[in-house]
Design a protein around this nucleic acid. Structure first.
Lengths: 110, 110
DNA sequence: CTCATATTTTTATGATACTGGAAATATCGA
DNA sequence: TCGATATTTCCAGTATCATAAAAATATGAG
């Protein structure tokens, strides 16, 4: 991941509504959730939610697929792991890492 | 971590200069780095960097300590892990989690 | 006390983001 | 084709953020 991508992803998450929507999708897993269901859960007008989902899409954090009349959104877990890896990269230059001692949030492939 | 805190942290990171400064501090580890050293490394005017560091401080992502004439900034690793935990919380509702299969970026205490 | 260094605060201007109603688009069923 | 459902695009008003020069503050040395 390059810095611009990371800034885009972080900007996308840096809004209460988008963060809520994103977390909802993270918890929903690969199956995802329809836009309408998200709007209802979050109590947002459809047009506002659409704006926020488009923002998350542009940032590459979620994906979209159509299923009949509904548009289903799902979190992109590779993007999430890429972002986390970018933030924690070369954490502490290799040393033991702070109070609780967390060498590195090791992820499978990264 | 509550949502407001997370939004604050993400907003703080959602800027190229702040993200660069933060990553520099993450890689520097608990020792941290003086404001002047960061400004030089990033090629930023002192006043601009100060603005950005204050933003990261307000978000709780970094800490400050004085050492003679210099102010030393260091990443707060607990905050970072808290943020990552918040993002990945209840990821996939427990199921296997996407392509690479990453159940959860397990961290020591969280 | 005064000067030099390190950093922050103040300030003004310009740019970007959020909001939600109304209209437009896409899909489905009869 | 027509109507209903699901969602997006358009719009404009308001609010928030980034920038960097200049002035202010804090520390240390002589």
């Amino acid at each position: 991941m390059i810095a611009d991508t990371a800034v885009g992803a972080l900007s996308a998450l840096a809004n209460p509504h988008r963060l809520a929507a994103y977390r909802l999708l993270v918890q929903a897993g690969p199956e995802g959730r329809a836009a309408g269901a998200i709007a209802e859960k979050l109590g947002l007008p459809a047009s506002s939610l659409s704006f926020h989902l488009a923002h998350l899409m542009r940032a590459g954090l979620i994906s979209q697929r159509r299923e009949s009349r509904s548009l289903i959104y799902a979190a992109d877990f590779e993007a999430m792991n890429g972002l986390i890896g970018f933030l924690t990269e070369k954490c502490c230059g290799g040393r033991s890492c702070a109070p609780g001692a967390n060498p590195k949030p090791k992820r499978s492939a990264a």
